[in-house]
Design a protein around this nucleic acid. Structure first.
Lengths: 109, 109
DNA sequence: ACGGCATTTCGAGGAATCTCGAAATAACGG
DNA sequence: CCGTTATTTCGAGATTCCTCGAAATGCCGT
């Protein structure tokens, strides 16, 4: 994952309503949830909801499909996987969130 | 970790310069780096650098200590660990969003 | 084709973010 | 003390973000 993609994903999650939405969709699993249910669940106007869903979608974290007159949103687990992997590899010093071995030994010594 | 802390950390990393800074500090290990070196490394004015370092620090991702006339910044690996843990527990459907983790550890070993 | 339901797009206002020069603070050496 | 170096704070301008009502779009049942 390139850092600009990571920034887009981080920015998408760095907002109260969007993080709430994404967590709901993660819980909902592959089936996802229709927009209406989401709006009701977090109690915001439809237009605001749509703005945030669009943001999450543009960042690649969620997907959209149609079912009748409802649009169903679902989390893209692979995108989230790529983000977490990016963070672990680039922002955690390699193995888990622990600095690289050399500096770690220095700290312990 | 509560979601408002997670949002602060995500927002702090969701910016080109700040992500760059944090990655540099992760690489630098516990020793960290002085502000001047950071400004030179990513080529931005000192006042902008200070703005972003302040942001990262307020979000809890980095720490500051003084050494002579230099201020040394270093990554707080535990904060990053908490963020990644939060994402895995709340945004990855429970059972780990990162099947590659095992292969990563293999590479390091 | 028409009416109604689910959702998005548009537009505008207000808030927050980013940038950067200039002035202020802190620490060292002489 | 004074000058120099390292860094932060202040202030203003430009840009982006968030919100939400009103209008538009898409789909379905009749």
């Amino acid at each position: 994952m390139q850092s600009d993609k990571a920034i887009a994903a981080l920015g998408a999650l760095a907002q109260e309503h969007r993080l709430q939405l994404f967590r709901l969709l993660v819980q909902a699993g592959y089936d996802g949830m229709p927009a209406g249910d989401l709006a009701r669940a977090i109690d915001i106007p439809n237009s605001s909801l749509s703005f945030h869903l669009g943001h999450l979608q543009r960042s690649g974290l969620i997907e959209q499909r149609r079912s009748g007159r409802s649009l169903i949103y679902s989390a893209d687990y692979r995108a989230m996987d790529r983000l977490v992997t990016y963070l672990m590899e680039n922002c955690c010093g390699g193995a888990g969130c622990v600095p690289v071995a050399s500096t770690l030994e220095k700290e312990i010594a």
